[in-house]
Design a protein around this nucleic acid. Structure first.
Lengths: 210, 210, 210, 210
DNA sequence: AATGAATGAGAATTCATTCAT
DNA sequence: GATGAATGAATTCTCATTCAT
């Protein structure tokens, strides 16, 4: 009875807080370190030191040093993709959806440089990345875009003479390379301007129309 | 004296063959190994074994293991860029030049998967890459494209309302992501078709024109 | 006193069942694991997983990982030695006793391969083994044999010109090496035949008698 | 020509000196350490420290920490077996050969305690031992004994009613267990006495003959 | 130009064990 | 009696790189 009382008196915690706090500390420590160094030059010793926990604990919570990274990335990407899905709700028309998609993607790359760097520069190089869960989420992201393109084609606003996956690749590549210099050299991206420009090109091409 | 005589009797070789044969062997060995593994998992021991030379010799010819890679990449990129420059000679009009540029780039990514993989997946992740000679050559490549775009704008075939460097990024990104899946999963790229599709989108955009 | 009372109130169980069930689970788990791996490559984590209990519980019931093994071995050896003592009861004559001893020993090695392996291959290598309780029981076993030999010498059936402990060593060694190949390579031992052969040699030697 | 001269002027070295001196140092260091600790508790760091060489050098000369041990054991056993073969030359009669075999084996166990300990207590427990080169040499040793036994049976001095491999196991076991206590507790073995006693028992058995 | 030998420095991972609850 | 969380300590092996010759 006393126990029950005690429990009730404690602040209500959201369910997600049930993950071990040390796990969170470790993840946080990695994120922090990624701000300054690339993943490969971060040691598990460092991570544990920054996290203030024992090195072995990393291996309780994650299979691996790389497992840790993927867990962190997965969390992050999941959040991004689900946010994006939400953002796209209620938007009418493939055109507008693409705009939103482009804008949000740029926003994401702009916002969290740590993850952008990993995503755009590091992770592809990791052995096993293309079999990882992380990559599965990236595929969801790409699938989202493909759906929009297909919708656009079906509703007659996008051209039908080109394979939609090709279109998708162009868009993804365009977004990425738009952002890449800023990521690499640490500039800020003007989100609105960039998104507008990019969509302009995507929708109407680079030739001058008369 | 005997040696000299011997040399003179041999067929005349171009100057560039004067580089030490061991240097070439080493470079070749690395290229060979890169076919199967990524650079980081190739050891200097392996390189020297495959090359059939002493491990220490790597350090006679190159500053570093990474130096070796950059040398190899530099050779490769130099060749590509100078070929591309040549290819562009005599072509009239920004449109046609872009077509050529796109086609040649895809051709390059399609042709030598080893270097494509390194270029698109690995090298960006290397510490110091963006200060490397290799990157300088890549910048030449990008500059080439920028020149064409500027020409197009000046001659009024390309739209003027968008920053040419942005246009360039879109094109570079589009090319890259067009090729990426094939690189990653080992498909062959249909060069002509891909180049045509890509240029279609680039020139006229993805919306349906009436 | 209270404790005693409490005990009396509980349903009457045979004394040995009073050991904590978790203790038994742990011991059982170790035995199970020993079937496939050697002791050193079994981890406490594994043991607890197989036992279905918490890892820390091992340290409630046993001082040590090794302590656990010794406890398990001790149980086992105790049973064997007391059985052997029983078996020898009522047998008349040193010769017959030796036969029984040999037969029973082979039977034991034949029967439980897990313990044979440990006994013949592993345990001697453990630091502190020769000070362990387990070893004390093995010494009882050896003492049993020595008694028989002494009896045989006193009753005039065994030769008196050789130190009985030497005789004992020969017998123990002979038994062991008779069984060793089967233990190592997993054959079955033909108990009766082996025991007969062995005794033949022991009793009369390997030279041909005329 | 000059080179040749130079070579000839150098002191003649035995071929075996051609093994890298560092290799020898490492092997020696291990042997030294084995005097006090068992193999598993010796670290590579220690070995290299005692050897006065770099730790990594161990891995140049040997595949493994265990590989090092096996190399050392192999050397040792090879020497022993070839000595034994030599010792047996010129001896007539299976009986005398067995005597020699027994005497030499005890001598060997008596002489180098380090190796005896490993051989009798440690090595059997190593994963992969029974597939190792070391074990192959031990098999040669056992084969040598089997040959003698077979000779004895053929020439009618040994009994024919028992499988020679069984006889062999008895002899090997007897030798081993004769020596074991001395190995374990560090006594010295009285080689002649022990060999005589052992042969007595082996040849004529333990029963009193009238 | 070439090499055999040697090395410094690191770094990930494993595990038995302890402690607070 | 039982447990989840945490940890200290250790250790093998890898590899790029250097140096004397």
């Amino acid at each position: 009875m006393e126990k029950k009382l005690k429990k009730r008196l404690q602040p209500i915690k959201p369910a997600r807080l049930s993950v071990a706090p040390s796990r969170t500390k470790i993840a946080k420590a990695l994120k922090e370190l990624l701000q300054d160094k690339d993943f490969n030059s971060i040691t598990t010793a460092e991570i544990s030191r920054v996290a203030g926990v024992n090195e072995a604990l990393i291996y309780r919570h994650f299979t691996d040093k790389r497992g840790l990274l993927h867990a962190v990335l997965t969390d992050y990407l999941n959040e991004f993709v689900s946010n994006l899905k939400l953002d796209l709700k209620g938007i009418k028309g493939a055109i507008n959806k693409i705009r939103k998609f482009v804008w949000a993607s740029i926003h994401y790359y702009n916002d969290d440089r740590v993850f952008s760097k990993i995503q755009l520069l590091e992770v592809r190089n990791f052995p096993g990345y293309f079999e990882s869960e992380t990559y599965q989420i990236v595929k969801q992201y790409a699938a989202l875009l493909l759906d929009i393109i297909n919708e656009g084609i079906e509703t007659g606003v996008f051209r039908q003479d080109i394979d939609p996956t090709n279109i998708r690749q162009v868009i993804l590549g365009a977004i990425e390379h738009y952002c890449l210099p800023a990521i690499i050299f640490g500039h800020t991206i003007k989100n609105d301007l960039m998104a507008d420009n990019l969509c302009e090109i995507l929708f109407d091409g680079i030739t001058k129309k008369h």
